[in-house]
Design a protein around this nucleic acid. Sequence first.
RNA 1: GGGCGAUUAGCUCAGCUGGUUAGAGCAUAUGCUUUACACGCAUAGGGUCUGCGGUUCGAAUCCGUAAUCGCCCACCA
Length: 876
Amino acid sequence: MNDCSPTLGAIYAKWQEKGLFDCHPESDKPAFSIVIPPPNVTGNLHIGHALNYSLQDAICRYKRMKGFDVLWQPGTDHAGIATQMVVERMLAKEGVSRHDLGREKFLEKVWEWKAQSGGQIVNQLKHLGCSCDWRRERFTMDEGLSAAVRKVFVKMYKDGLIYRDKRLVNWDPKLQTAISDLEVVQKETVGKMWYFKYPLEGDASKFIMVGTTRPETLFGDTAVAVSDQDERYKDFVGKNVLIPIINKPIPVVTDEHADPEKGTGAVKITPAHDFNDFEVGKRHNLPLVNLLTKEAKLNENVPEKYRGMSPLEARPIVLEDIKALGLYDHEEDNPMTIPYGDRSDVIIEPWLTDQWFVDTSKLVGAAVDAVQKGDTKFIPDSWENMYYSWMENIQPWCISRQLWWGHQVPVWYGPDGKIFCEETEEEAKAAAEKHYGAATELTRDTDVLDTWFSSGLWAFSTLGWPNENDEHLKKYYPTSVLITGFDIIFFWVARMMMMSMYAMKQVPFKKIHLHGLVRDEKGQKMSKSKGNGIDPLEMCNKYGADALRFSLLIQEGSGRSVLMSEARVENYRNFTTKIWNAVRFCEMNECKKVEGFDLASVKLPVNKWIITKLSEAADTIAKWLDTYAFNEASNALYHFMWNTFCDWYLEAIKNIFYSDDEGAKAETRAVVAAVVDEMLKLVHPFMPFVSEELWDKTADRKEMLMETAWPALNAYEDKAVAENQDWIFNLVTTVRSVRSSVNIPAAAKITLKIKDATDAQHQNVESNAAILKSLAKVEDIQFVTETGAGEVAQVVDGMTLLIPLAGLIDVAKEKERITKDLQNVQAFVERTKAQLANAAFVSKAPEQVVADKRKALADSEQDIAKMQEVLKLLGA
RNA sequence: GGGCGAUUAGCUCAGCUGGUUAGAGCAUAUGCUUUACACGCAUAGGGUCUGCGGUUCGAAUCCGUAAUCGCCCACCA
């Protein structure tokens, strides 16, 4: 916590020292809890993390201010594959492989690494301002969390939900482990389809032609399948054909898998190397011939000349050999997808092994029901459909990994292979003794679990489970909301739902807010290879964490992508600077906090106006944050702060500060100080550092900004006064606009004449004369009954504004300007008249709509008359 | 092949249950060295709301359809 900014570091340290991040299970405040999506312990903060954590921090800070007892539960994930790879790479530099060390020593090295350089990301989170309860930091390999893993595994095993099976799995030959379906990414390529002949056994003149994308697997063929509807191959069914090269006879079988429409209608069946063929093999009791080693090299089941080659190396040689035999027919280009490992980026092979599976089909029911009942709500809810459809088509989850780093499967085998699944070795031994009638030597299963298995328990394992009496578990579970990226909805969200419904009989979180991906300015995914990444820490250093956070927050809505570029961060850095300068201005004008000042005593309309606007902004921002619409909330804050507070309010009160009305000055100073205080509270969830720093700078405080309550100012709102004030500001804009369009020099003071003002308008202008004069650069305001020559005119709200220009007026231009204006209003009047003449509209539309139209029509007609009057004077 | 989402100003997006003379930020133009801020202030220009059809007194908003783009899932002998 130093390379961001010493000041920010100090503020962060102070929050932490005061215990402001801590949860208080003993308090009677209502709970609000979030578990962090645990970053990999190997991780470095990237921009996607920055988005995810900024959202959570904003919500947590806001909820604290709203009176909740907040727990933001932090921690890291042991990240089986990633971590093992990191440590292996480190060892490789010393010329050591993990196999040189052996499992136990290697795991020691991993823990050493973790102690020294693991979890850097936790410190990086602090740079962002994350207000996690760090006392409660957890790691998925902690003893408590590991106990949770063992307990759930054993329970699932005993409930028949976890089983061991020999079947085809996705095998990663680089990492040499099985991986789950989700960890396989399909890449589009244009491959080839090769066609060649399988001669009929005993009659080489007859043959079946097959097409295949993987000719090198023919050594593992154990049948050729055709459709029972396919006349072409009727005579072959039940007979044998010979595998080219090795001349091994295999049967021709009929199977639904063979589609007469595709290829030649005949399929070679390689049950040990293709998922579909595996199923065909099962239906026909075909033998399984495994051709690959765990490195995915051809093994002893292929002729010697091919052994040790990779499938891709063997393929052209096999094809040459088929050609040499005269069995080759032709080839075609074939668009296809090839499976790759998401971590290793090598081709994944279906491979026959013993693995552990979760029978997810038995878990999905409760997980789906919970969402259908609304116990967990998706935000945005469009994700629910995707969740349902994935759940409905769920496949068994392969949870075993042939790695060393991870939760070792709590399974021991007896000498006869009997399985003892228990939470501890002692229990397993006891069970074995009972089973065999004597103490028996057991060997432990060497597999570890898929990292997502432990992540699936994260929402309750971090809160103390399996200790059901843990006060944190009791108070904070189910958690209030999970905030995470939609990309891990299946990996994590769905699994958490299943695991939680199974182990806890409760949902893990009541809401789930799914946010989009961070992309570059052009909407492209950020990647190292493209070099279009944005480093969040660099942005923090250059522009401050607040600017980075805000540029992320203001874009996050409806789960859409968040586009990032340095220019955007820079842009919102300007916003932090603006706040800084505004507060500085207030200080310079001696706006000091007045103890005991009662906002209800405020008299000046402009002050009542800002208080009303502030109150409205507090409610609006709260409303949006409550619905996780971070973009809307951020926009509301930006608009209030910059537009309402700086551009209007501070400009409007300058004339008070420069006047000698001490009473008005005193009231305004007190109001400014109070408004700044409340405004900083609104800023705080979004930009905690700058707001806290200004809070500290502007007064002697008993409490830090972070621990203050969210503004509740509805009692001080005065909507009527605020509306009048809005009208005055609109009038200012109108005058400025006229000035600009007739090129009155910016610095020139003008006289403003107002004709046909109503009493209310007159009064409003009178009481805001000073503001009007200073903001519109008006020297003198006069209420008149006649228009004079040489005056620029503008009709607004039934009044005619007149600005004498001492003969400088360009009559032709004036006519054009007013005529254009007039035409717009006339067009509106025509439309509205037509609408009101429509009997169907008048009878069917709501009364209020019709009344509003009538009023607008009348007003516009009045304005038209005044414009025509002006034009007449111009000599039209 | 199945599903989902998007299409509104030059760019990025608001516009919730149909009634606004369709908004914001950025960018652009013009004018401002106004004693908080040029990382600023003021003003302005800019949109037949992707096309077509329908429902309705009334459609950016609802329905259908087409096109384009994006994403997810499945399959590809």
